[in-house]
Computed example of a mutant assay.
Amino acid sequence: MDWDKLRIFHAVAEAGSFTHAGEKLKLSQSAVSRQISALEESLRVPLFHRHARGLILTEQGETLNRTVREMFAKLSLTQAFLSESKLKAAGQIKITTTTGFGLCWLTPRLNRFIEAHPDIEVTLLMEDDELDLGMREADVAIRMHPPRQPDLIQRHLTNFPMPIYASAAYIEKHGAPTDLMSLEKHQLIGFSGWHPPLPNANWLLELARKKCHHTIRNRVEINSLPGIAQAISSGMGIGSLPLYITNHYTSLVQIMPSQQLPLVEAYFVYPEELRTSKRISVFRDFLLSEIANEQKP
C-alpha cells in the first residue's frame, strides 16, 4: 500500500469529508477524492460510505484506520525519541488540558517554561473532551480527575477548592446569600453540556436542590468555565468555580465562606513509553514548582 495514500486516507477518516481533509493537507477536494478512489481500487474494497452529509467508514475502512492510527502513533513516538537528548531537554511536547485550566492557569505561566528550556517547542491543546494519549493525540495531559486508563502514569499535582462567588455589583443589588436555602432567592449560573470538564461542575445546584426540594434551577448555563467566571464578574449571578479559574478574575467576591467545598483533583498524566523522557520530566517539575510557589503564604 502506498504510504502517501494511507496518509490521505487517515486524514479523510478523521475529518469525515474530502473537503475538510483537503484543507488540512493543503490539497484540493478532487485530488483527495482521486487518492481515496485509487486506494480503494488497489485494495478492491470500499473504505467509505458516501452520503450527502459526509463520509462514514465501512467495516473494512474502520479496520484499516485503526491500523494506520497505530502506525502514526508509533512513528510520532519514534520521532520524539530520536530527536531528544538524554542530557538536555529538547524536542516537541504536545500538552492537552481543559479549556479553563489552559486559558486561566497554564498559559500565563508558559513563558517561564519556554524561557528556561529554549530547545523545547510547545503545543497546547485546550480541549474539554479528553484526547487519547495512548494513540499519541498528545504527549501529556493535565486532567481534573484521576485518570481512568490503567496504562497511563499519573502524578497528583494538587487539589483546587471550588468556592462560591458573586460580584460586588450583584451583592450590592441583591444581597449575599448566607446558606444553601437562601440561594432559592438568587440567580445561579452553572455549567451546561454532556461532558463537563470537572466531575463536580454543578455541585452547588445539586446540593441546593436537596435543601430546597428540587425547586431551584440555574438561571443561566454556559458550557465554559471561563465563560461562567465572566458572567459572574459582570453581575449576572452566583456560581462556584475552581481557584485556578477565579485567580484570573480578581473582581470576584467569595461568599458563603462557611459552606464545605468540593475539591478538584489535578493530575499530570503521560504514557508509560515516555517515562524516561527528559522533556516530560522537566515539564512535570515546572508544574510542581509553579504550584508550590502559588501555595506559599
Rank of each mutant, 00 (worst) to 15 (best):
I164W: 01
K74P: 00
Q35T: 08
Q60K: 14
R112E: 14
A229F: 08
F283N: 06
R136M: 12
S240F: 00
E59Q: 15
D128P: 04
I245A: 04
F286W: 12
P262C: 10
L274I: 03
R136N: 12
Q29E: 13
L274E: 11
S289G: 08
F283S: 06
L188P: 05
T215K: 11
E14M: 13
P196C: 11
M236D: 00
A169P: 01
L6S: 09
E184V: 07
L43F: 10
Y270V: 07
D128R: 08
D119Q: 08
K211G: 00
S289F: 07
K88P: 00
Y165L: 03
K210P: 00
N218G: 02
N159V: 03
S30M: 14
T246R: 06
R143A: 14
L131M: 13
P163C: 03
M1P: 14
P297C: 01
A169F: 02
V68I: 15
A21Y: 10
P197E: 11
T99V: 14
Q35L: 09
E127Y: 05
L131A: 04
G237V: 01
A168N: 02
G16K: 12
L82A: 07
E294L: 05
H214R: 13
Q154W: 07
L261N: 07
I255K: 04
Q35I: 06
R155K: 12
N293M: 13
T178A: 08
G235R: 02
D139R: 11
P297A: 06
R69N: 11
P118I: 04
F191M: 02
S233Q: 10
I216V: 08
L263A: 02
Q154F: 02
Q35D: 14
H145L: 08
L110S: 07
V45K: 15
G91K: 01
P177W: 05
K185V: 00
P226H: 08
W203N: 13
T58V: 12
R217Y: 06
P146D: 09
I238D: 01
V253W: 00
V122H: 00
A52S: 11
L39I: 14
V32P: 10
L263T: 05
R279V: 00
Q154V: 02
